[in-house]
Nucleic acid binder design. Sequence first.
DNA 1: CGCACCTATTCAAATAATTGAGTATGTGAG
DNA 2: CTCACATACTCAATTATTTGAATAGGTGCG
Lengths: 187, 187
Amino acid sequence: MSLRYAVLAALLEGEASGYELSKSFDVSLANFWPATPQQLYRELERLAGDGLVASRVVRQERRPDKRMFTLTEAGRAELGAFAGRPPKRPTAVRDELLIKVQAMDGGDPDVTRVLIEERMDRVRGKLDRYRRLRDRLLDGRAEDEYLATAERVGPYLTLMAGIGFEEQNLRWCERALLVLARRVPLG
Amino acid sequence: MSLRYAVLAALLEGEASGYELSKSFDVSLANFWPATPQQLYRELERLAGDGLVASRVVRQERRPDKRMFTLTEAGRAELGAFAGRPPKRPTAVRDELLIKVQAMDGGDPDVTRVLIEERMDRVRGKLDRYRRLRDRLLDGRAEDEYLATAERVGPYLTLMAGIGFEEQNLRWCERALLVLARRVPLG
DNA sequence: CGCACCTATTCAAATAATTGAGTATGTGAG
DNA sequence: CTCACATACTCAATTATTTGAATAGGTGCG
């Protein structure tokens, strides 16, 4: 059910096609509500059927036609109502690496270390992208200044959540590596 | 597919019934791989079919019979192999509250603040439980001492991940409340 | 020219997850 | 005595999610 509202929230940024949504989703909402392109297309179809989004076909010259979607007033109202209701489901994290860490004892700690180092690489990449996005939002202004003038703070707050989460992720990896290093001293 | 290994990892702690697993899952593996009792029962059934766990029926006097499950050697081997392979899926977070925060602009910030305060209550409760669990594990020893002598560090590392995640969660909530307080000054 | 990758979507099949109820019995609080 | 809650599961129905492929043209590299 929440995907529905995630899509509506994404459309607050303005008109978009399913394809564009699937791209912009990746760098923002997917960080707390992942969805594949297929899920987005299906959801947009349903939302259009319920009158929460309106669509128009845009013909293009050197590319396939695309369907652009906009929030309707009904959609905006539904989203507003959703935003005020307490969440139905608790936050869920699915992290395969932690299953492997939980199960590591008895195996080779060095193998687990390699997995954690790979995780760190990916986390660092994600943090770089997040920080570039934040810099683009701030556009040279200090945070205080931005928050005082910006019309929307929601996307900024969720971005801060993403940055904080990945920073914490990195701190955990560092600690875990220290613990594993002690387990199997070099030499 | 990962649930399979999460269940095997849980059975590293020793023999358990489906019911017991669904209880212990809640306080450990569910924090990075949630599962309902129904999922666990189904998975145990499959694992037994594949010979990765063995089961025996325990008759009880004042309670219904239960089926106790143990890791087989094949199960232990499968789990070990899994623990060394790089994760198939990236970490996924599903957090309905963040959709609401993303969508809040245009609505009443005070409503969002209430939701964040409710989140803080739940997070603090979770942190308390985590910390009690850590204290039980450490049993009076300092962390260094524990890590030097413990036969298993996996469960400790995943517990630290849970604590760190919730602490970060709390820090984000505090920041978000500050931002929202500025948005709508009291009076 | 061939190959890989981008735009832009749709379809179908398989697997996984959620929800709600049902079956039994026992314990403890008020 | 009743009500809620714990033990210990099972079943069925519906939704959601994942995976792979199909369609169809365009761009850029060597």
